[in-house]
Simulated scan of single mutants.
Amino acid sequence: MKWEGISEFVYVAENESFTLASKKMAISTAQVSRQISSLEKRLNIKLFYRTTRKVSLTEEGRIYYQHCRSVLDGLDAAERAITNLQTKPQGKIKLTAPVTYGEQTILPLVNDFMLQYQDVEVNAYLSNQQVDLVEGGYDLAIRLGKLIDSSMMAKKLGTRTNYICASPNYLDKHGVPHSLSELNKHNCLLGTLDYWNFSEGNKDKALRVTGKLRYNNGFGLVDAALKGLGIVQLPDYYVQEHIESGTLITLLDNYRAPDEGIWAVYPHNRQLSPKIRFLVDYLTSNLAKS
């Protein structure tokens, strides 16, 4: 009888409400309450603080929830793996991605994916803020650079390169910098950060730079660089075509920082979902071709 009350406990913990838990489980509130009371009695601990307005986990309840959630996730994963009810992706996918990279790269690939798998529905939210995937109900996030959330599952989709570059016109007027120390003689076009990333002597280096212009928009910075206003550091998807055409010249290539990762990040309990697995594999395959 050890499993009795576990599902009810997890639903109440995640919804902070006996009523909402009962609705989602399609059982009565009284039944949920009885199961929780029985569970607390069997464990001899208090799992929830109850008031007329709110239900919240006790310290013991939080610890117990973490283990119970993992167990239920494992059972769900085992059932999906054994029954294999879905052989192709179907259902809703809620994802988030950075604005520019999402617009230029991710959403066009998602559109192509949907042409192949017409039983999939997608809700995409583009933001440069790292949203809480669990709280927001997201299935998937595309993130760039170093990952900081170790509680999520992650798969590397590819890499991006950050280039230092300027227009030929700017370099003709102001000269070409050959060392990092020479950057203080130039107008550096700034984004949201006060520093640029480099590699010197096989070590990562963050160098503070200054300039007369600061935008929180990559396209504005590209336009400024193309018009000869200064030197810029931007990811390849902003500047690659201009570098190839010669309208921007790369600088300080010997100090270029290592490529940064492009990641698919998703909650651990959704790793076996066919719709997510298929989409992540599709993105991985197509980003490798770009």
Rank of each mutant, 00 (worst) to 15 (best):
A225P: 10
A225V: 01
A225I: 00
L226Q: 04
K227E: 07
K227T: 08
K227H: 13
G228T: 08
G228L: 08
G228Q: 04
G228C: 07
G228F: 00
L229D: 08
L229T: 08
L229M: 09
L229G: 06
L229S: 11
G230Y: 01
G230N: 05
G230C: 08
G230W: 03
I231S: 02
I231L: 06
I231G: 04
V232M: 09
V232K: 05
Q233N: 12
Q233G: 12
Q233F: 04
Q233M: 12
L234A: 10
L234W: 02
L234F: 03
P235H: 04
P235F: 08
D236C: 09
D236P: 08
D236I: 03
Y237T: 02
Y237A: 04
Y238N: 02
Y238H: 02
Y238A: 07
Y238F: 15
V239I: 13
Q240V: 10
Q240F: 09
E241Y: 13
H242T: 03
H242G: 07
H242D: 13
H242N: 14
H242V: 06
I243A: 09
I243V: 11
E244H: 13
S245P: 03
S245L: 01
G246D: 06
G246L: 06
G246A: 07
T247D: 14
T247R: 13
L248C: 02
L248D: 05
L248P: 06
L248G: 11
L248R: 06
I249Y: 02
I249N: 05
I249E: 08
I249D: 05
I249G: 04
T250G: 05
T250Q: 12
L251R: 11
L251I: 09
L251E: 07
L251Y: 07
L251A: 12
L252K: 05
L252W: 06
L252R: 10
L252M: 04
D253K: 14
D253Q: 15
N254D: 15
N254R: 14
N254Q: 15
Y255L: 08
Y255T: 09
Y255I: 13
Y255K: 11
Y255G: 06
R256D: 11
R256N: 11
R256Y: 06
R256Q: 15
A257W: 03
P258H: 05
P258E: 02
P258S: 03
D259M: 14
D259K: 15
E260H: 01
E260Q: 05
E260P: 00
G261C: 00
G261S: 08
G261I: 00
G261W: 00
I262Y: 01
I262T: 02
I262V: 14
A264G: 09
A264Y: 00
A264T: 00
A264D: 05
V265W: 00
V265Y: 01
V265E: 12
V265G: 09
Y266Q: 06
Y266T: 07
P267C: 02
H268R: 12
H268S: 08
H268C: 05
H268P: 00
N269S: 10
N269M: 05
R270V: 10
R270I: 10
R270L: 15
L272P: 01
L272S: 12
L272F: 12
L272Y: 10
L272T: 15
S273V: 13
S273Y: 13
S273T: 14
S273I: 09
P274V: 12
P274M: 13
P274Q: 13
K275L: 01
K275S: 11
K275W: 03
